[in-house]
Design a protein around this nucleic acid. Structure first.
Length: 308
DNA sequence: AAGTTATGCAACCGCGCAGGG
DNA sequence: ACCCTGCGCGGTTGCATAACT
């Protein structure tokens, strides 16, 4: 037996809400509150909406305490910080994150994260899922694989990267007349590069290897970027005044660095050692962010928020 | 100016949980 | 113990608009 739908599909309007519908719903809720969403559409001036739709419209848009418009820099930083904590806890609860931002809904926060903040972090060379620099992740992966597997992985990744770069460059119609192989027209195909793919991959691999083998100066701060965003945690590499390239390629032996690994041993409140597992992350989420592997300078009140 | 692509937001979908009967 | 209902949640989709060609 399937799940009973929340409402009859017929005679139920969908899509954008009109001003009239908003007014009906808002005035009804102002008088009667939000008990029993299923009955609200009928009672609120015969709204042809299902109760669930009404609830969403109210909670995400019509509530008088909601804040609309751009997210402030402080709000963005809070989202990123809490997202990092939630990741460690294995659970991203947008509602809890939104709870720290008065006037913002979980939907707001989620959308802002998906459309802007993820790109922002990626642009900084930081993986928005793990909140670690891409270089660090690559190094971590490399340490867990046998050399032939690493080579295959690197080749595959670089092939994708190269294709993407060429796609972008040709799309922008950048003139690389002096940089063979020339890409003719703006219809890029791997073949159109004149067979230089293997060579290019080899060059990039060589460059990567050099970067990875480079001696670490691991305590430099992560580069400050534009738009007021600053990663305040420890450095994962030896990046300096780097471009996105230097951020993502110069790992500087970070694989051996302790503290940021996904499977590092950590201690709980009783000093007992644990390894792996969800509970471990929950217990140590705050601890991790107040120790060497701190990613963001979280204030105590945020850190102490229970992780569910 | 017209067509195409990218972006951001609002809304929807379906699952899981909690509480009541 | 089981079923039903309401609600909350995260993931996804659809659409309007901006940006680009």
């Amino acid at each position: 037996m399937g799940r009973v739908p929340c409402c009859e599909r017929e005679n139920v309007k969908r899509g954008q809400w009109t001003l009239e519908e908003d007014n009906k719903l808002a005035s009804y809720i102002a008088q009667h509150g939000t008990r029993n969403w299923r009955l609200i559409p009928k009672n609120a001036g015969r709204l042809q909406r299902c109760g669930k739709s009404c609830r969403l419209r109210w909670t995400n848009y019509l509530r008088p305490d909601l804040k609309h418009g751009e997210f402030s820099e402080a709000e963005e930083q809070t989202i990123v910080k809490l997202h990092a904590v939630r990741f460690v806890a294995d659970v991203i609860r947008w509602s809890l994150i939104a709870g720290q931002l008065p006037g913002r809904t979980d939907n707001d926060v989620k959308n802002h994260w998906n459309t802007k903040l993820k790109k922002k972090l990626s642009g900084m060379g930081i993986d928005p899922v793990t909140h670690k620099p891409f270089s660090h992740l690559m190094a971590e992966i490399a340490t867990t694989l046998a050399p032939p597997q690493v080579a295959h992985l690197a080749e595959a990744a670089l092939g994708c990267f190269k294709d993407e770069m060429l796609h972008l460059l040709t799309k922008k119609r950048t003139d690389f007349a002096s940089a063979p192989p020339a890409v003719t027209g703006n219809a890029y195909t791997p073949e159109s590069t004149g067979g230089g793919k293997e060579e290019t991959i080899e060059k990039i691999k060589l460059g990567l290897s050099k970067a990875i083998m480079h001696d670490a100066d691991a305590d430099k701060a992560y580069p400050t970027l534009n738009e007021g965003f600053r990663y305040v945690g420890p450095s994962y590499g030896n990046e300096g005044e780097g471009s996105a390239w230097s951020q993502s390629t110069c790992t500087g032996g970070v694989a051996a660095r302790r503290g940021g690994g996904l499977h590092d041993k950590v201690e709980d409140d009783n000093g007992e050692e644990a390894e792996g597992g969800k509970a471990e992350h929950k217990v140590n989420a705050a601890g991790m962010f107040t120790s060497e592997c701190v990613l963001w300078d979280l204030p105590d009140d945020l850190m102490m928020h229970p992780i569910v």
